[in-house]
Structures are given as C-alpha cells and as structure tokens.
Design a protein around this nucleic acid. Structure first.
Lengths: 125, 125
DNA sequence: TACAACCATAGAGTATAGTCTATACTTGTA
DNA sequence: TACAAGTATAGACTATACTCTATGGTTGTA
C-alpha cells in the first residue's frame, strides 16, 4: 500500500468540510490536490498537511464574511510565489483595513442595539 | 396636490437604495408602505420617515453580515408590537452575542494576518 | 471474485439577495 | 392633449456558494 498524503475523504474528516465542498474549493482554485504519477490505475487526488491548514484558514475567513474570491487573493498572498513581497504585503494590508472597518461597524451596531435595549427596558415603566 | 409621506422614487433617492431593491425588501417583509384610501385612481405606496430609518438600519445590518431573515427578526424586536418586552430583549441579546463573536473572530484573523506580515517581511533577509 | 465503499467528472438543483424586463396603468408637463 | 416619467406586478435572470445526483471507474475486504 502506497501513501502520499491523504485522499479526499480523509481530508473531509480532518477538516469537517464535505468532499463535495472540497471539490468545489478546488475548482474555485483555493486548494490544489496532486496526482501521483507513479499510479496509473486511477487519477485520485492526494492532499498534504498544508491543504488541511489552508482549509482551516478558508473556514475562518469565510466565517468573518470574506468571499471565495477574497479568500483566493488572501491565499495567494499567503502561499503562492506568484507575488512579490511588496505585493503580498499590500494585499495583507488591505485585508487588515477591511477587517478594521468591519470591527468598527460591528461596534457601532452594538452601541445602537445597546441603546435600544435600554429604551425597550424603560417601556416597562 | 395631496401628499402623504413619499413615493418609492423619493425613498430610493433618500436612502441610496434602488426602487427595485426597496420593493424586494417590502416583499420580504422588512418594510411596509401604506396605500392612501382617499386616492382611488392609483395604488401607489406611500412611505414615511420611519421607513427611511428602517432602510438605514437594514443597510448597516447588511454591511456587518446579517441576512435578510436575521434583519427581519431584529426589526420585529425593534419596531413591531408582536413581541413582549422580554422577547424583544432576548432577540436583541442574541444579536449582541453574535456581534461579539464576530468581533472576536475578526480580531483573531487580524492577529493571524499580522503575524504573517512579519514573516513575509523577514523573507527579505 | 463478488460487492460495498471510495474516487472523479459533469451537470442539475437550492438558497440568498438582489437585478432587470415586460406589461400596463397613472401623473405631470409642454 | 400628447407624451415622457413615474408606479405596480409578475416573472425571468444573475451571482455566490454551495449541495446533490448520475454515471462510471477503482479499491479493499470477506
């Protein structure tokens, strides 16, 4: 038995993301499995530990509202060699700013809701 | 000329939301225009200042990632009389918690990106 | 070697949140 | 009064992000 990384189902179990969704992410360019040229009987994709990490990053980024496209850019800055250091830093700085903006908006909304809760409480009197 | 509030196009101008999208929100139950029973020649909807405020709230809530459905619940707690004070407070508290969670996740992501920026910068050496 | 479990690909289907088109009636203005 | 501009409704269309089904081949185990 020859093993090079893991197949899609194990990756799914490891990350809690379904094989279907993993294939969707692969088609979207977020991750890339590798085919083993020494195996000719099938064309199964093999995934490494780095892919597990990438999928965790994708989960985190999605949960805070980044789109697949935005995550793709972030991943390029993170993992690929297609960008210069300056370009990478620029992408990362942009994301930082986007996050700061979101935090500000969330805090503003918290304030609004907090004020409204007081109003609602005083309806009692 | 008889005026009761504003028609959809003025509401659109006031809020920066297109008439199409406003109708979509109306169909989704987020806002409600009123028809003037004294006018029989048409069935135009009339909107008041409160609707302007609601649409601003919708914009804010959307920008921080709330869905139409979630915004609907929030608006019920905010404006409707269908809920008791305790129910309203419960909805608002839930939203507060959801926002706190999002803020935590955003801060965690900022940290990750920050650490990664340092790594990228050190690739220079 | 049967056969359940696994893999790949293509493409259909779903949910959310709009966005646009067509149709038809109403209003305001030159 | 013509006619451009505004309004309502229904329904088609788009984009995003999955999710599922169908089909056909491969692997592992009893």
């Amino acid at each position: 038995m020859y093993f090079c990384g893991m197949l899609i189902n194990e990756l799914a179990k490891r990350t809690g993301i379904t094989a279907h969704t993993i294939r969707f992410y692969e088609k979207s360019g977020l991750i890339q499995g590798k085919r083993d040229e020494k195996i000719t009987s099938n064309n199964y994709f093999h995934y490494d530990e780095a892919t597990v990490e990438k999928l965790e990053l994708i989960k985190d980024a999605k949960s805070i509202g980044f789109t697949i496209n935005e995550i793709g850019n972030l991943m390029d800055a993170w993992y690929s060699n297609k960008m210069t250091i300056a370009e990478k830093l620029s992408v990362l700085k942009d994301k930082m700013q986007a996050i700061d903006e979101k935090i500000s908006q969330l805090i503003a909304m918290k304030q609004m809701i907090g004020e409204f809760m007081e109003t609602v409480e005083n309806e009692n009197c």
